[in-house]
């Protein structure tokens, strides 16, 4: 038995976390927890009624986020967090409903629901943690995996270009679209806070590292190396990652 004394150090965001669910399942260097930290600060900072706030996830590493938040948490089926959230919001419009899930979940298997929720301007905030890979199942290529990437199902490199989520969701009519990376924690928090207070279909993509299953196979270093990449690939004066066809993250080489 460990005899480590109890440290009187409080996690500043623990009031919105389910403490009995910690530690998380996430790997060292993973960016999902970083996004959750920004989200937790945003939730606390906006002063929205947490008793009237529900969080819905699909399946995957990011699909576990709902279960770590001290809110009404729904861990649904793969790709279907958005339609579940749609039903929840319609039947109780008082609820703030947040969908928090991963790229494979929301845009590959659940792509149709993303398109249509944006089209009907459903009053939801969707946070898509994009680690560019199916991580929970061991690193298979997703619709968001950059072209030419190595993954367990693309051992000769991915032949398919990746989808650009902000452009897609914008084209479908979303009223609020943003993209940050796991490096931009303060910007992400501010954007989340802004989105939480807005009505209509809001979409935030957060590009995050998956050192275990994406970075490593593609010679991209560890989580810290990814942070440097994100920092250095900032394109414009407002210090936002650019919104071209690809990601702010480094790609092995450009196809177009």
């Amino acid at each position: 038995m460990s005899t480590t004394p109890e440290l009187a150090i409080l996690n500043p965001v623990e009031e919105v976390l389910r403490k009995d669910r910690i530690p998380t399942i996430w790997c060292p260097g993973c960016g999902i927890g970083t996004t959750v930290n920004s989200f937790a600060y945003a939730l606390m900072g906006t002063g929205i009624d947490l008793k009237k706030t529900a969080i819905v996830s699909g399946i995957g590493c990011s699909g576990r986020v709902s279960g770590y938040m001290a809110l009404d948490s729904f861990h649904t089926t793969h790709g279907r967090a958005i339609p579940f959230a749609t039903g929840l919001k319609l039947a109780n419009p008082e609820l703030n409903v947040i969908v928090y899930s991963g790229d494979g979940d929301l845009t590959s298997i659940g792509g149709n629901h993303l398109v249509h929720a944006a089209r009907r301007n459903m009053d939801l905030l969707v946070v898509c943690v994009n680690n560019m890979i199916y991580a929970m199942t061991g690193g298979q290529a997703a619709a968001t995996t950059p072209g030419n990437s190595m993954s367990t199902t693309t051992p000769y490199g991915s032949f398919e270009p990746e989808i650009c989520l902000p452009q897609l969701v914008d084209a479908c009519g979303a009223v609020f679209v943003a993209r940050w990376t796991a490096f931009h924690v303060k910007q992400l928090e501010r954007t989340m806070a802004k989105a939480l207070k807005k009505k209509g279909f809001r979409f935030i993509e957060v590009v995050t590292p998956c050192p275990t299953l994406y970075q490593r196979r593609n010679n991209m270093g560890d989580g810290l190396a990814a942070m440097m990449d994100y920092k250095n690939s900032q394109q414009d004066q407002e210090r936002r990652p650019h919104l071209r066809s690809g990601h702010g993250a480094r790609r092995r080489y450009h196809r177009r």
Binding site: V56, F74, T76, T77, G79, R80, I82, P83, F84, A85, T86, G87, L88, K89, L90, A91, N92, L95, N112, H113, V115, H116
Partner: peptide, 19 residues
């Protein structure tokens, strides 16, 4: 909804909202 997958889970969202 956009398909039956969506319909069959949207209704469960409605139930968990109390309806």
């Amino acid at each position: 909804m956009e398909d039956e997958l969506a319909a069959s889970i949207a209704l469960q969202g409605m139930v968990w909202a109390g309806q």
